[in-house]
């Protein structure tokens, strides 16, 4: 299926990506090619086949609901672009 520029822009917004104007034609073309390619799944007769949920058809294991993690905030915040007094800094959200 051929995607329009507007559709690609909408998807980009949902994905929180900003696509430069200059790159748009290539993205529209490439994504259209990819979607056209995967469109062949339409013709597969899947009948009442159950969708696969896990490659080994296993259930997720359960564990007791107890605290297993220790506090590593300082270690983790060393990789943060901006922190202050143990908090992650972002642009002002509420005026």
């Amino acid at each position: 299926m051929k995607l329009t520029r507007q559709e690609v822009q909408n998807i980009a917004h949902l994905a929180r990506l900003e696509l430069p104007e200059a790159d748009m034609p290539a993205f529209v073309e490439n994504l259209s090619d990819i979607i056209t390619f995967v469109d062949q799944l339409e013709n597969a007769s899947t009948g009442d086949t159950q969708p696969m949920a896990h490659p080994l058809n296993m259930n997720q294991p359960l564990r007791p609901d107890v605290v297993t993690e220790s506090d590593h905030r300082e270690d983790y915040q060393r990789n943060a672009p901006a922190v202050e007094r143990g908090l992650y800094l972002v642009p002002r959200v509420i005026e």
């Binding site: 998807i11 980009a12 949902l14 994504l31 799944l41 597969a44 969708p51 696969m52």
Partner: peptide, 24 residues
């Protein structure tokens, strides 16, 4: 972008769910 498209409202069944069935 491809992933966002196939998971977006209106396309999920046609792409993601269908693919998981073919995978089976």
């Amino acid at each position: 972008l491809t992933g966002t498209y196939v998971l977006s409202a209106g396309y999920y069944d046609a792409y993601y769910l269908k693919a998981q069935k073919v995978r089976q």
